[in-house]
Design a protein around this nucleic acid. Structure first.
Lengths: 173, 173
DNA sequence: TGCAAACCCTGTAGTGACTCCAGAGTCAAG
DNA sequence: CTTGACTCTGGAGTCACTACAGGGTTTGCA
């Protein structure tokens, strides 16, 4: 945050300045998010302040859980900002939609898990390892049958298996 | 749900009965969650009702967003349920903790995104594509600088980049 | 009986966004 | 001149699947 992003630097410095692992920077270059930088005589990558800004932008977007594809789009707008505002708003609104949906899913999940948790016959206890192993654990029993209070309707087997804000998997045809 | 899980069947039937893609069942076998089943004369996999129950258990856990590792552990408890209750509770509590934490992260995220969204100088508008392209989009500007209202403190660059309930990445030493 | 459709097999490669490693080259300080 | 920190490339591993190629098997129907 306070280091010199105002002169040319090589990858380690850029990494430190933007709090990004070196490998990740190289990965961004491979996948076209960062342009291939100039090289020193020893073939080291040499970055400019503009590169640092671009990387900071990318990291910022990643911290907001945007996919690299979304960021690519956004960078396209930033590079050629003619009438970008509406498109940026749209992208952002969609992304917010993803996040909200994921939160809903996780809340349903939490409710189901807490329901399940209550099924334990030795509720709230912790140790008591050996002793009452006669009755099978209610939780395991609850997990064994599909479509009761747990999972059946809300999450549904193989319906929308979550992931990380973004839906991937293209619904095999 | 209503089909015959009460006799031997091959993989397609098991898939239909548990609403699981065939490839996924084979994948579970490869990764040790499902035991290698018996084979027919034509080398087809032959599953028993017990296999169907086990798979239903796995799918149930997956619908609750548990990792295959967690499920493996749980299956271990189910196979040898001596003093499992405490351990099951612990695992479940930890898992609930993951979910709750992820919800918190996403809520922070949502707040940040909505803040960002407000930065657009043509707030709330939609079209208006070409015309006032003179001023650069406030959103893009907001994303360009690190550590303001957006991202800086809450999500923090490269701090805990989310994913899918579970933290993977082992904090390189 | 012949044949096509539907099923199943193995093995491999791809997804996203990194992460880690090996083996080699480069640079700055002492 | 050596040591250690830094950098390079290329490849493999992560998670939980998904998709496909190129074959074999089974079933149903004419």
């Amino acid at each position: 945050m306070n280091n010199a992003i105002n002169v040319a630097m090589n990858i380690g410095k850029l990494a430190a300045a933007t709090n990004t692992p070196v490998e990740t920077i190289r990965y961004y270059e491979r996948s076209g998010l960062m342009p291939p930088p100039a090289r020193s005589t020893g073939n080291y990558r040499v970055y400019t302040p503009a590169d640092a800004e671009r990387l900071a932008f990318i990291r910022q977007c990643r911290a907001l859980d945007m996919s690299l594809d979304e960021i690519r789009t956004l960078l396209g707008f930033a590079d050629a900002p003619d009438g970008a505002c509406a498109a940026v708003n749209t992208l952002l609104d969609e992304h917010i939609g993803h996040v909200v949906q994921r939160i809903d899913e996780l809340r349903r999940l939490e409710r189901q898990l807490r329901t399940l948790r209550k099924l334990c016959h030795e509720n709230g206890a912790q140790a008591t390892a050996i002793g009452d192993a006669a009755a099978p654990c209610g939780i395991l029993a609850g997990l064994a049958q599909p479509g009761d209070e747990v999972g059946g309707k809300a999450a549904g087997p193989a319906s929308a298996h979550l992931g990380g804000t973004h839906a991937r998997r293209k619904a095999r045809s």
